[in-house]
Amino acid sequence: DETGKELVLVLYDYQEKSPREVTIKKGDILTLLNSTNKDWWKIEVNDRQGFVPAAYLKKLD
């Protein structure tokens, strides 16, 4: 059920640097789980959840 889920576009590649982070690729469109922290957003990638720098993402309307 995708209702109410926010999507984000990945602006730059990011390689995870800790187990709490996930790797993302430029151009991916992913589900945003939590954006309350202005610097690190929690997203879902391939059934994995983790954090990436918010500056690497853009919210889609």
Rank of each mutant, 00 (worst) to 15 (best):
W41L: 02
E16M: 11
L33R: 04
G27H: 05
E21V: 03
N34F: 07
G27R: 02
N37G: 09
E44F: 06
I24H: 01
A55E: 12
S18R: 10
R48N: 06
E2N: 15
L30W: 15
T31K: 13
L60F: 08
V8Y: 07
K26P: 03
L9C: 08
D13E: 05
K17M: 11
G50Q: 04
T31Y: 11
R48L: 07
D61A: 12
T3R: 12
G50F: 10
G27Y: 04
Y14E: 01
N34A: 09
Y12E: 14
N37D: 15
E44W: 06
K58H: 08
S18E: 09
R20H: 14
A54Q: 05
D13A: 06
L30M: 05
K42G: 05
R20V: 11
T36W: 07
D28V: 05
V52E: 00
L32A: 03
K58P: 02
L33P: 00
Y12T: 08
R48D: 04
T36M: 10
L32C: 09
S35K: 07
G4I: 14
D13M: 03
K42N: 06
V52I: 04
Q49A: 10
V45K: 15
D1E: 12
K17G: 08
D28M: 15
S35V: 06
E44R: 09
K25H: 14
T23N: 05
L7P: 04
T36P: 04
P19S: 11
A54L: 02
V8I: 05
I29L: 07
R20F: 13
K38W: 06
V45T: 13
K25G: 05
W41Q: 00
K25S: 10
T3W: 13
L57S: 00
I43D: 00
K59E: 05
Y12W: 12
R48C: 05
L33M: 08
W40A: 02
A54N: 03
E44I: 09
L60V: 11
P19F: 07
Y14I: 02
R48V: 08
Q15A: 13
R20C: 14
G27T: 02
W41C: 01
E6N: 11
S35I: 04
G4V: 14
V45N: 07
F51C: 10
E2P: 12
A55P: 08
Q15N: 12
G4Q: 14
I29M: 05
V45F: 14
V45W: 08
L7C: 11
R48F: 06
S18L: 08
L30Q: 06
P53M: 02
L32P: 00
I29C: 06
K42Q: 14
N34R: 06
K59M: 09
N34H: 06
E6D: 12
V45G: 07
L60T: 06
W41N: 01
E21A: 05
D39Q: 12
D1V: 14
W40G: 01
L32W: 01
E6Q: 15
K26N: 06
I24D: 00
L11G: 01
D47E: 13
D39L: 12
V10M: 01
R20M: 12
A55L: 11
K59W: 07
D1N: 14
K59Y: 08
K17P: 04
F51L: 08
E44G: 06
L9G: 02
N34Y: 06
